[in-house]
């Protein structure tokens, strides 16, 4: 049985799982309302009890997401090593963008064309940091504009009514960006690219295959070896039943995402923008 390297804590996996679940509900209920003029949109809304039901669930799930986001901010406060500030924020275990990420990106693109060797990544790749901060940005933009649209009377008591027009378009475009990025780019990089095919289970299972890590993130493995922490991070493969659950959950999420993406693209010309 091949060894695996521990990557994600249970609470990190829980945050990701909740994000997957709520994001798909938001995508389906939001697209259902947006595409209400088409049979496809009506069918999506029907899952949530119709146009009004989809709106209620969209608002409720949005509030839940903001609550989870607030909990994540509290979690970050506990993760920060306050006595080692600000150095710890720029370290290899931090998700904070670093100038070396730009170097890794350029070297990676060079490797695509065979111009240079593959970059020696540490714990987090530049695309993973981008995805993480994209969610941050998205939660602020979508959450802020979503709150305005969910409580328009209250919002208009301290800002002009036309700001709701602006909030609506910002909410709509940011949501389309988020869905497009997750359903096309995140799914492909995380799960479908040849090295990870058929699926990268590490965010569900918590650990990644050691061989894959040695190939993609040699700098991290070297650092763990140097610090003598590699042994404590090695784990075994989980039983087949758990692997099957992760695969089913991951593929169900991906199938739902692709269904929404294809449906939205096919019907884009049939709605009033």
């Amino acid at each position: 049985m091949s060894k695996r390297l521990y990557r994600f804590t249970p609470i990190q996996r829980l945050f990701h799982g909740l994000l997957v679940f709520t994001f798909l509900i938001q995508a389906a209920s939001g697209l259902g309302r947006m595409y209400m003029e088409t049979p496809w949109g009506k069918a999506l809304c029907l899952v949530f009890g119709g146009y009004d039901g989809a709106g209620e669930i969209h608002r409720g799930t949005g509030l839940f997401m903001l609550g989870v986001f607030a909990l994540h901010l509290v979690y970050l406060l506990f993760c920060i090593q306050w006595r080692q500030l600000p150095g710890c924020l720029m370290g290899p275990d931090s998700m904070v963008p670093h100038p070396r990420d730009l170097g890794h990106f350029l070297q990676h693109v060079g490797w695509f064309f065979g111009l240079c060797p593959e970059p020696s990544l540490d714990r987090w790749g530049y695309w993973e940091k981008f995805d993480y901060w994209a969610v941050f940005w998205g939660m602020v933009i979508l959450g802020g504009s979503g709150l305005m649209l969910a409580y328009p009377i209250f919002a208009s008591s301290f800002m002009p009514g036309w700001s709701l027009n602006v909030a609506f378009w910002v909410h709509r475009l940011e949501a389309l960006l988020a869905m497009g990025h997750v359903f096309m780019i995140h799914f492909f990089i995380g799960h479908l690219r040849p090295r990870h095919f058929p699926m990268d289970r590490s965010i569900f299972q918590g650990s990644a295959r050691l061989e894959t890590m040695a190939r993609e993130r040699p700098a991290w493995l070297d650092r763990l070896k140097t610090d003598g922490k590699l042994g404590e991070r090695l784990t075994d493969e989980v039983p087949l039943a758990r692997k099957a659950i992760y695969m089913v959950f991951g593929y169900a999420a991906m199938a739902a995402g692709l269904y929404l993406l294809v449906g939205a693209l096919l019907h884009a010309t049939h709605i009033t923008w």
Binding site: H108, V109, W111, F112, F113, G114, W127, L173, L176, L177, G180, H181, M184, I185, F188, I189, L192, R193, P194, R195
Partner: peptide
């Protein structure tokens, strides 16, 4: 923002897949 993200990451992802 959306166009820039897709213009950067879609070719990036396709090239990555081909390279792998």
């Amino acid at each position: 923002i959306a166009g820039g993200t897709f213009a950067l990451f879609i070719p990036h992802t396709v090239l990555w897949a081909i390279r792998e």
